[in-house]
Write a protein that binds this DNA or RNA. Structure first.
Length: 426
RNA sequence: GGAGUAAUACCCAAGUUGGUGAAGGGGCUUCCCUGCUAAGGAAGUAGAUCGGGUAACCGGUGCGAGAGUUCGAAUCUCUCUUACUCCGCCA
C-alpha cells in the first residue's frame, strides 16, 4: 500500500513515479473523494461525540429523578441525522481503500523507467562455456542421465510437471541442502511454513487482489485458501499485525517450499523441461528491517544469492531491473540470471527485491523505536535459490564430450561424494 | 467431521449493559528504606488506529473478528476465526 499522505502531498509526483512502472493513474477524482471522506469523518464523529455525551447524562438524570425519555429522543434524533453521512462515508472509504489497494509500489528513483528492455546487467561471473563438441540441451541430458521423467509425470499429473528420480532427485535435494547450510552459516532462521495460506496472506504480500488468477485456490474451501506461489508469501506474513521491538530487527529468515503457480498461458516451446512449471522448488529468504536499513540488507541478500551461484561455478549475470519489470509490490529488484547455453539466454534463478514499507502497510508489520514511536518495517525477499533453472544450467554448462556431467564441488558432500553423472544405458 | 468450553492490556485475571479508557495481581520503570547473595514501602505503567491541531491537546473506534439489539454492550443475539477437552474418522 502506498502511503496516502504521499498522494495527498504530491499527487503529480506519485503519478509520474507510477508511470515509470507503466502504470497510468490520475488522482484527481480520488483526491476529491478523499477530501470529502475526511470532511465526513469530522461530521460523523462530532455527531457521535454529542450522542456519547448525552448518553452519559442518563444515570445523572435518573439519580435526580428527571425525565430520561428526553435524552433518548435527542440521541435517536442525532443518530437519525448521522445516518446519511455515515452511509456516504462508508461508500467513500470503500472507494478510497479499493483504489489504494490495487496501486503497485513506487519504484526507487534511480531505476530506469519502462519494462524488460531497460534491464541492465551490473555484474557478470565467468564467461560463456565453449564446447568443442555438439552440446546437448538440458532435456536431452536429463533423459540420457536418467535424472528426470517427464512422461510419467504427464501421466500421473499432467503437462507442466516433472518427476525427479534417482540421482536427479539426489541432485535436486543436494542443491536445496547446500542452500540451507549456507543460510544457516549466515545466521538466517530456517522456517518450514504451511503451503496452504489464507487470503489475508496473499493480500499482504501484494499478490491479491490483482493476481488472484495466478495462484491455485482450493475449491469449495471456506475461508478461501491457496497454495503459496513462493515462500515469500508465507514468510512476509509472519509478523502481520504485530509490533516488534526495534532491537529485534533485522529479522532474517529462509524457507524451503515448493512454489505452486498457474503459469496460465505462458507455455512456450523454448521453455521446455524444468524451465517453467506448475510446481518448482525454491529456497527463499525474507528479511524484516527498520525503515532506514533496508538498503544495506538488500545488498547483503543480493550478495548471498550471488555467492551461491558462484560457488556452484556457473556463468551468470546480475541485472538491475527497470521499474516496470519489478513486480507490483517491489520498489527495486535485482535478478540473478544463469546462462542456459541451449537457449542462448540468461534465465532468472534468483530475484532479490526491496518492498520497503509497501507490504508492511498492507499487513501492519511495525516496530517500536526507543522513543516509543511506531514505524512500519521494511520487508525484503530474495530467492536463495530456485533450483529449476539451476539444474539445466549445471547440466548444460558442465557437460562433457562423453555425455557425462561434472557435479559442482559444493554439492558433492550432499551426494555421497559423487563427482560425475554418467549416461545410463537404454 | 460432531459436541462442549473459552478468547479482556507485556503475562495472569475480575467483570451479565450506566461515570469502565476497564478491579486485582505479576512483571517492568522511577524513587525511598534497609549496609547487603534478601526483603519492605511509594508512585508510574493501555496500546493501537483514524480525523482535527504547529503543538500541549481534542474527538471517533477499541475487551479474538464482523454484523445486530439498545439512548448506552466487554457484558445480550447471530456469523466467523482460533485454542483447549471429549467423541468419531484416518493416511
Amino acid at each position: 500500500m502506498i502511503d496516502i499522505k504521499k498522494i495527498e502531498q504530491d499527487p503529480k509526483k506519485v503519478e509520474e513515479l507510477l508511470k515509470r512502472k507503466l502504470y497510468d493513474v490520475n488522482f484527481d477524482e480520488f483526491l476529491t473523494k478523499n477530501n470529502r471522506r475526511k470532511e465526513l469523518i469530522a461530521l460523523v464523529e462530532s455527531n457521535k461525540a454529542q450522542q456519547n455525551s448525552l448518553s452519559k447524562q442518563v444515570p445523572v438524570y435518573k439519580k435526580e429523578g428527571k425525565n430520561v425519555q428526553e435524552i433518548f429522543d435527542k440521541v435517536k434524533q442525532l443518530a437519525q441525522e448521522n445516518k446519511q453521512n455515515q452511509e456516504e462515508l462508508e461508500q467513500l472509504e470503500k472507494y478510497c481503500f479499493d483504489f489504494l489497494k490495487v496501486l503497485p509500489n513506487l519504484p526507487d528513483e534511480d531505476l530506469l523507467p519502462g519494462g524488460k528492455e531497460n534491464n541492465r546487467p551490473i555484474y557478470t561471473y565467468k564467461t560463456k562455456p565453449v564446447f568443442n563438441f555438439k552440446p546437448k540441451d538440458h532435456v536431452e541430458l536429463e533423459e540420457s542421465l536418467g535424472l528426470i521423467d517427464y512422461e510419467r509425470a504427464a501421466k500421473i499429473s499432467g503437462r507442466g510437471t516433472w518427476i525427479y528420480k534417482g540421482l536427479g532427485a539426489q541432485l535436486e535435494w543436494a542443491l536445496i541442502n547446500f542452500f540451507i547450510s549456507e543460510h544457516l552459516k549466515d545466521g538466517y532462521e530456517f522456517i518450514l511454513p504451511p503451503h496452504l495460506l489464507n487470503y489475508e496472506s496473499g493480500y499482504t504480500a501484494g499478490q491479491f487482489p490483482k493476481f488472484e488468477n495466478d495462484v491455485f485456490f482450493l475449491k469449495d474451501v471456506e475461508p478461501r485458501k491457496f497454495l503459496l506461489p513462493t515462500a515469500e508469501t508465507a514468510l512476509v506474513n509472519l509478523y502481520r499485525n504485530e509490533i516488534l521491538k526495534e532491537e529485534d530487527l533485522p529479522r532474517k529468515f529462509f524457507a524451503y517450499t515448493p512454489c505452486y503457480r498457474m503459469e496460465a498461458g505462458s507455455y512456450r516451446t523454448e521453455e521446455r523441461g524444468t524451465i517453467r512449471g506448475y510446481q518448482f522448488n525454491k529456497v527463499e529468504m525474507v528479511c524484516y528491517t527498520k525503515d532506514n536499513e533496508s538498503d544495506q540488507i538488500f545488498e547483503e541478500m543480493v550478495n548471498k544469492a550471488k555467492r551461491l551461484v558462484e560457488k556452484l561455478g556457473l556463468h551468470f549475470q546480475i541485472s538491475k531491473l527497470a521499474a516496470a519489470d519489478c513486480s507490483a509490490s517491489m520498489a527495486r529488484t535485482y535478478d540473478v540470471e544463469v546462462w542456459i547455453p541451449s537457449m542462448g539466454i540468461y534465465k532468472e534463478c534468483s530475484s532479490v527485491s526491496n518492498a520497503r514499507d509497501y507490504q508492511a502497510r498492507r499487513g501492519m508489520m511495525r516496530y517500536k523505536d526507543k522513543d516509543g514511536k511506531v514505524h512500519y518495517c521494511h520487508t525484503l525477499n530474495g530467492s536463495g535459490l530456485a533450483t529449476s533453472r539451476l539444474i539445466p544450467a549445471i547440466l548444460e554448462q558442465n557437460q562433457q564430450e562423453d555425455g557425462s556431467v561434472i557435479i559442482p564441488e559444493v554439492l558433492r558432500p550432499f551426494m555421497g561424494g559423487l563427482e560425475k553423472l554418467s549416461p545410463i544405458k537404454k
